[in-house]
Nucleic acid binder design. Structure first.
Lengths: 147, 147
DNA sequence: ATGATTAATAAGTAATACTTACTATATGGC
DNA sequence: GCCATATAGTAAGTATTACTTATTAATCAT
């Protein structure tokens, strides 16, 4: 009844969708026997996107605290998917690099991400889908103050 | 570099936004001294939206497992914001009702949700904002199979 | 040279949400 | 009416995501 209590506002929609997407990713990753969580998959993709880079820079790119990313990297390193290397320019810092073993995992993750995306899109036409992405980018920019 | 590893796809955008929104909500709720988590706030809004209803129906409306909602309700009941009442039609079931004490909390939550929404929207024009909501609804529908 | 800052991480915590197993009650078939 | 099955709620346990605080080691600025 009361429109004041609307569970279909922007925030609810985004929160719902994030949960649905994560659950779907999770299920598909599980089914594929990849052995990484959605968060770890996210870390891998960022690392693949930006190449060799410092942990703190990776964390900043991901919009997470350094500590949070450090724990993800622990697990990815245990699985032999990333390697921490000393940064010759700063002995405190560590450079993150994907291993060859990560290639196959990344391929599988990309495939799964594509499947989830296809499900999300459904029958939506090209223009709407592109517009949706643009609008979401704009909103994210409003939060992060950046692009 | 590689466009194959794009951290600006739909899934990333939604996941990022959900995290940013939750963090912003959290911060503002904290600052206002309301003493409920975003998830509890969500539960309250659903309860306000649908009126007196059974726990299992509430869970289904929220798209969560009954157990998950049960725990939220435990905490809300502790704070005196909801009341569990026996369902005269089924002695296993419990009806959920908001207390009067919940009114003030709901008001504060709505105000905060409005602030977060305003931040998300930024300078976006009316048409785009409405379109964004429609498109998100459509995508959520693709996941839930419903509206 | 030293005082402040930064990079990484150990430790602890909180929120969100799940599954499994259990109890009590309800319902449908015979 | 009786019993098998299903349902409503919850206790217990777990996993993921992500935070804060404090510590250590190294760097930077004055």
């Amino acid at each position: 009844m009361s429109l004041r209590f609307d569970p279909d506002t922007f925030g609810f929609l985004v929160t719902d969708l994030a949960r649905l997407i994560r659950a779907d990713m999770d299920r598909r990753i599980e089914a594929a026997g990849i052995g990484v969580t959605p968060g770890e998959a996210r870390t891998l993709i960022y690392a693949a996107r930006y190449g060799v880079l410092r942990q703190n820079v990776l964390a900043e790119r991901m919009g997470l605290e350094a500590m949070t990313v450090s724990v993800y990297l622990d697990r990815l390193e245990e699985r032999g998917l990333v390697k921490r290397m000393p940064d010759p320019a700063d002995r405190r810092a560590k450079l993150i690099r994907l291993t060859r073993k990560a290639d196959a995992v990344l391929e599988a993750i990309l495939r799964i991400a594509g499947e989830v995306r296809a499900r999300a899109r459904g029958e939506m036409d090209e223009e709407s889908w592109a517009r949706l992405r643009d609008l979401l980018k704009q909103v994210r920019g409003n939060f992060t103050g950046g692009a």
